[in-house]
Design a protein around this nucleic acid. Structure first.
Lengths: 343, 343
DNA sequence: TTGAAAGCGGTACCAA
DNA sequence: TTGGTACCGCTTTCAA
């Protein structure tokens, strides 16, 4: 059932039917009602491609996920983010288009996205510190927002980020207050902006306390479980092992915990493990000390808000760069276990 | 830059340029080369909406994720699945469109998807045992494939599934062989087909061994960490606690392990925990006994293969229902810890 | 308040 | 081998 058929069925012109369905004021209420009912009864939905060709708006948003052959992992929070964004889009009548892109030839891709006209704007995921997609998109005049920030980019752009620096600074502070002096940082890839900021939070807090970080206690890699396991295992086998671990991902923390366990140590007594984790209120009274830089529900939230930012930007391109820094939900300092051994 | 401009620039008709770019044989090689080079130089990409309006093919696949208000969790493997599928689509020149849908009014959605014409086919996620989307899509003549199966649906359809029944049967067998008699099953929601099959594998193996399952040792719910924690904690506080846990998700298993830990028990000595988990070869020598019903990389694989199935179906609608059952990668029986205490 | 007709940016048939 | 033209399904201007 298309517009032509529907209008013929109603003995009206396509024009009138179109206007009736799209809420134009010049249609009589009687006609509008008749048209609406017929559309409903005959199960008419306008063809989105034709509509967007005619209007110039795709009513779709692209999400571009860079996937290189080297690190092809998909961040597990991705699903939650997308769920939040998708919800917003659905409400606004937008579609979500996912593009996985080999980051070797990104530039082409964005040019194509622009030319193909499938989307009205894009969300950039996983920005690196020097993110060249940002100037590129600005140049292409394709509306975009960034999930995260790019420290080395100076041109203005819209973004939404978690305050990673602060989250890791507070976690470090907390461990120092507990008496820890040998704290390990199991970080993500540090050319990624979020990982860089986390390290900054960690290092600056150590510096303020007059301590210098031990390079042997700092690792940076893709956030897999086995990476956490190997890192922790190696560090614990050291002459002067760490007494605490600051871990950048809950998946990686799984591996760390296992290594701690295998080393015959007890979490919360011999070793503290702090991680970015799920919203597990029951942990408050456990031996582990969790840190939340982004709970699953807050990631969902972030997705929804970022989507709204982009829709605003598309509706009113003049509304200038929008930015939002979300404070991490920190639940720390509630360990009921005995204070960890000091180094 | 659109076709009209490009053709004017080349002093050719739109027809010829279109043919040259789309590999039609009747264009002279000389012309084709000239056209290609100009297109490249001027950064021409055809408008996808116009193209699909003209050809009737959207060159896009929809993925529909049901999200009800009751269980709005996104399965963490979702990201991996999508990565695999996205890769296939990218290679084939297809886009991936994500639709999150409140499962209360799914029917409308599929009708709209069909009418809107944004996609050439859809992938169905998270089928329930009685999945009414399957007859609906058949009726709508919208090509589709299912990730998983629907036990209570009798009409033929295309699907790809992991052999969940077998995986859980073998895991149960293994625990029985170790001497366990009180085995707990911490399952997902059992109206979901995969959870139902897992329970079948568990129960049938117990039956074969002449045992009856204790209802107190079986739970079914959304696979969160806290669900695992509470279930295990309660069961372990029982008069006759289980000596082993079969857990349906690695996230849920986190909670189970924590409960075991808090109960002062040691994994692999006092209690065995078997779970669907990541591809962790290092676990082979650990105390835990993992079972893999779907590793992250195999989920990725499944996404890619399912996407290929759907593309085949779209290209040749007559090729009949395609099905594929993937055997789980099982890594069990390698516990180096002492045999668990028998009940 | 309604309708005719010209696009939107391509493809594909038919004629040259 | 090339070009003219109708058409895909909708919106929107202009005229009635």
């Amino acid at each position: 059932m298309n517009l032509k058929e529907l209008s013929r069925h109603l003995n009206l012109s396509q024009t009138t039917v179109s206007r009736a369905l799209n809420g134009y004021p010049e249609v009589s209420e009687k006609t509008r009602k008749r048209v609406r009912e017929a559309a409903e009864a005959l199960n008419y939905s306008p063809n989105a491609r034709a509509k967007s060709l005619a209007t110039g708006r795709a009513h779709a948003i692209g999400h571009v996920i860079p996937i290189s052959t080297k690190h092809e992992m998909v961040n597990p929070i991705f699903g939650d983010f997308v769920a939040g964004a998708g919800d917003t889009y659905a409400r606004a009548g937008y579609e979500m288009v996912l593009s996985l892109v080999d980051d070797s030839r990104e530039e082409d891709l964005y040019r194509q996205i622009r030319a193909r006209g499938n989307v009205d704007g894009v969300v950039i995921h996983g920005p690196r510190m020097a993110e060249d997609r940002i100037p590129l998109l600005s140049e292409l005049q394709l509306p975009f927002v960034v999930h995260g920030r790019a420290s080395e980019v100076n041109t203005p752009y819209s973004w939404l980020d978690t305050n990673n620096t602060r989250a890791f600074a507070r976690a470090t502070r907390f461990l120092l207050d507990l008496g820890h002096r040998r704290i390990a940082l199991i970080n993500g890839l540090e050319h990624m902006d979020f990982a860089f900021r986390r390290r900054e939070g960690f290092l600056s807090t150590l510096r303020e306390a007059g301590l210098t970080a031990d390079p042997a206690l700092m690792r940076s890699s893709e956030m897999t479980e086995i990476y956490g396991y190997r890192s922790a295992r190696d560090m614990l086998a050291h002459d002067t092992p760490p007494t605490a671990f600051l871990v950048a991902s809950m998946i990686t923390a799984l591996g760390v915990r296992r290594a701690v366990h295998e080393a015959g140590l007890e979490m919360g007594r011999d070793v503290s493990v702090i991680t970015h984790d799920d919203d597990l209120s029951y942990l408050k009274n456990g031996h582990d000390v969790p840190i939340f830089t982004a709970t699953r529900s807050s990631v969902r939230d972030a997705g929804a808000r970022l989507a709204e930012m982009l829709l605003d930007l598309i509706r009113d391109p003049g509304c200038g760069p929008l930015t939002e820094l979300m404070e991490a939900e920190l639940i720390i300092g509630s360990s009921t276990g005995p204070a960890p051994t000091k180094a």
